[in-house]
């Protein structure tokens, strides 16, 4: 009996190990090409193992590409800022909605909820943001529209409602005001859900190419993902060049195939490194938040 149990465990683990290997193949392919020699790629195509190990693609990305550094700074800036501000703003919505004595709670909940059901659509938002709010080509267009994610507001509200009432009671009796309760009590004891949402917000912004596609023309304000999208078609963008024949000539020398894949690694890397650290929180946060209160 014990033997068959062990055997089935071994089979199961082997199956999963294989599945994980398959899942990782696309990462390894990109990684491999990014460390390949450009001439090998020209001759033999992409391969899972570099024929000659070569780091010149990364050298190129970091040496020549001021564009990349700019995009990195912009992207990191708006991702971190959105993460902090959005958690704050969403908690400011979620906490009152979790209090049973808030007057008009149903109506306010519906006010938020309705935006999940229906939206004006792409064109009206586009015209509002560019023509009326004049946020086109501005850093803030990455931040402001993303601050309230109603789905996460309700996730937080559910979590807040789940904390024992006694905590609120004693705080209220002690004469604490609502701000103190929110910032000194509720937020500190809600770490799993806050961490989960913070991670999701950060990654959503880190992965944001849509905002730049719609609203940003200024090369210096472009997000990393959008830059990556554009160099798949047009590697010369990496060169940060004024249109001129000398630079255009130089563009021909870019080891395009390997540099592209190196860029993909440079762009995806931070997200991949950050997320395992949050994992212990977010499986908990996700499952708690998804149970309706």
């Amino acid at each position: 009996m014990k033997k068959t149990k062990n055997l089935s465990q071994i089979i199961l683990i082997t199956v999963f190990a294989l599945l994980c290997a398959v899942f990782l193949v696309p990462f390894l392919l990109v990684l491999s090409v990014s460390f390949s020699n450009e001439i090998d790629v020209m001759n033999y195509g992409y391969s899972m193992i570099p024929k000659h190990f070569d780091t010149s693609a990364y050298g190129y990305v970091f040496k020549n590409a001021k564009t990349v550094i700019d995009a990195y700074a912009v992207t990191f800036g708006f991702s971190a800022l959105t993460m902090v501000l959005s958690v704050l703003v969403m908690a400011m919505a979620a906490y009152p909605l979790s209090r049973s004595y808030l007057r008009g709670r149903k109506a306010i909940s519906f006010y938020f909820y309705f935006t999940m059901l229906f939206s004006g659509g792409m064109v009206p938002s586009y015209i509002l943001i560019t023509q009326y709010l004049h946020l086109g080509n501005s850093f803030w267009v990455y931040v402001l529209p993303a601050l309230v994610n109603v789905w996460y507001v309700f996730m937080m509200r559910t979590f807040f409602s789940g904390t024992p009432e006694e905590i609120y009671e004693s705080a209220l009796i002690d004469g604490a005001n609502e701000y103190t309760i929110l910032f000194r009590i509720v937020l500190p004891i809600s770490k799993p859900v806050i961490a989960t949402i913070a991670l999701f917000m950060f990654l959503a912004k880190w992965n944001d190419w849509m905002t730049a596609l719609l609203y940003i023309d200024n090369q210096r304000l472009v997000s990393l993902q959008y830059l990556l999208q554009r160099i798949l078609k047009n590697i010369e963008l990496l060169q940060n060049m004024q249109v001129g024949s000398v630079e255009a000539q130089a563009a021909a020398d870019i080891p395009a195939e390997t540099v592209r894949m190196a860029m993909a690694i440079v762009v995806a890397g931070p997200a991949l490194i950050v997320f395992p650290f949050f994992q212990k929180y977010f499986v908990k946060g996700l499952t708690v938040g998804s149970v309706k209160g």
Binding site: P26, L29, L232, M261, A268
Partner: peptide, 30 residues
């Protein structure tokens, strides 16, 4: 296993499009 299987969820479609291009590129694709 969970960590590995969840990882792709955190990639943007742009990054994934590079991976797909690695397989499907008409000249160099795997």
């Amino acid at each position: 296993f969970q960590t590995v299987l969840i990882t792709p969820y955190f990639l943007s479609w742009v990054v994934v499009s590079y991976m797909v291009y690695g397989f499907l590129s008409p000249q160099n694709g795997l």
